[in-house]
Amino acid sequence: MRKIILAAAIATSALGLAACSNNTETETEEAVDAMAADAEANADSAGEAIEGATTETATDVEAAADGAAASAERTADEIAADAANVAAEAEEAAE
């Protein structure tokens, strides 16, 4: 009789451990899924931040290039005006 009770207790313990192991496996899978979702969200946020910084940098570079082109154009116009003045003064001096 004792052997039957001992076997039943062992069987009950084994079933309890199996149920616990199943529960632990489910909880572990849920934790892994949550960590994967967090990693994906962080990667998305980082991607958006990089994209925003890239767009801002491109806008700044374009503005700087436009400013440099305008400055060069003004300088070229000033040189042309100075050259015209020198030519006019040379013509006046030649007369």
Score class of each variant (00 low, 15 high):
69 A>N: 07
80 A>K: 05
11 A>P: 00
3 K>T: 11
82 D>I: 11
13 S>C: 12
44 D>Y: 03
39 A>L: 08
50 I>D: 13
48 E>H: 12
58 A>G: 12
69 A>E: 04
82 D>Y: 12
94 A>Q: 07
4 I>A: 15
21 S>F: 03
48 E>C: 07
21 S>C: 05
40 E>N: 02
95 E>T: 06
29 E>M: 09
88 A>L: 14
74 R>K: 14
62 E>K: 04
33 D>S: 15
85 N>C: 08
81 A>R: 10
73 E>A: 15
2 R>Y: 09
32 V>P: 00
5 I>E: 15
79 I>W: 06
25 E>C: 03
65 A>H: 08
82 D>P: 06
1 M>N: 13
10 I>R: 03
77 D>F: 05
80 A>M: 09
87 A>F: 03
40 E>F: 04
66 D>A: 13
86 V>W: 05
73 E>K: 09
69 A>R: 09
70 A>F: 09
55 T>F: 05
25 E>I: 02
3 K>P: 01
80 A>Y: 01
71 S>W: 02
95 E>L: 11
47 G>L: 03
83 A>T: 12
70 A>L: 12
5 I>R: 14
28 T>W: 00
74 R>A: 15
21 S>K: 01
57 T>Q: 10
72 A>I: 13
16 G>S: 02
67 G>E: 15
79 I>F: 08
67 G>P: 00
76 A>Y: 04
5 I>L: 14
58 A>H: 05
7 A>M: 10
17 L>P: 00
9 A>M: 13
3 K>M: 13
12 T>W: 02
41 A>E: 02
71 S>Y: 06
48 E>F: 08
1 M>F: 11
10 I>K: 05
29 E>I: 12
46 A>T: 00
27 E>T: 06
69 A>H: 08
33 D>R: 13
79 I>T: 14
53 A>I: 05
34 A>Y: 05
4 I>N: 14
71 S>G: 07
24 T>H: 00
78 E>L: 14
75 T>A: 15
83 A>H: 03
20 C>A: 10
24 T>K: 01
84 A>C: 05
85 N>V: 14
44 D>H: 05
29 E>L: 08
42 N>L: 09
90 A>Y: 09
38 D>Q: 11
75 T>C: 04
26 T>A: 09
36 A>W: 01
5 I>D: 13
69 A>Y: 05
77 D>H: 08
52 G>I: 11
72 A>Y: 06
45 S>R: 08
54 T>G: 08
25 E>N: 08
68 A>C: 04
30 E>T: 08
37 A>N: 03
87 A>W: 04
46 A>Y: 01
79 I>V: 15
53 A>T: 06
49 A>M: 05
91 E>W: 07
54 T>V: 14
95 E>K: 08
73 E>R: 11
17 L>G: 11
71 S>T: 15
16 G>N: 01
50 I>S: 13
13 S>K: 04
38 D>Y: 03
53 A>C: 03
40 E>H: 02
93 A>R: 11
93 A>V: 06
73 E>N: 09
95 E>P: 02
56 E>N: 12
50 I>P: 00
4 I>R: 15
